[in-house]
């Protein structure tokens, strides 16, 4: 067996899988849309406006409804979603606690 044989088969396999993933995203838009149907129904039933991805603080939980342009709004240790939050430490609250 030549040295290039296993390599070429491996490359062919990987390239095949690669193309399959590319094709996969267009393969069944119907099924993908149906998969989201229950979520969409829930969203329209309750009038949800935000995903439950960032539940740490009020203004991150409902990002679209939070007061805009005000950093460090709530949780003293919350990961900030404004650039400043990544660079500055949050102010130390006068009293520690609030259930922590």
């Amino acid at each position: 067996m030549r040295k290039s044989d296993p390599l070429l088969s491996l490359l062919a396999l990987l390239a095949g899988l690669f193309l399959w993933t590319l094709a996969g995203s267009t393969r069944s838009p119907q099924a993908a849309a149906e998969r989201l149907d229950p979520v969409r129904r829930l969203v329209s039933e309750l009038g949800l406006s935000d995903p439950a991805l960032f539940t740490e603080a009020r203004y991150t939980r409902h990002l679209s409804q939070a007061d805009l342009h005000s950093a460090f709004q709530d949780h003293p240790m919350a990961l900030e979603h404004f650039p400043s939050g990544s660079l500055l430490a949050p102010p130390r609250p006068a009293t520690h606690g609030r259930g922590e």
């Binding site: 993933t21 590319l22 996969g24 995203s25 993908a32 998969r35 989201l36 995903p51 439950a52 991805l53 960032f54 539940t55 740490e56 991150t60 949780h75 240790m77 919350a78 990961l79």
Partner: peptide, 20 residues
């Protein structure tokens, strides 16, 4: 990274969509 300081985190599966 996404969870940050949150306690509740959704388990979810994304639909494979790829930007060519």
């Amino acid at each position: 990274v996404l969870k940050g300081w949150a306690v509740l985190y959704p388990a979810f599966r994304l639909t494979p969509v790829i930007d060519g």
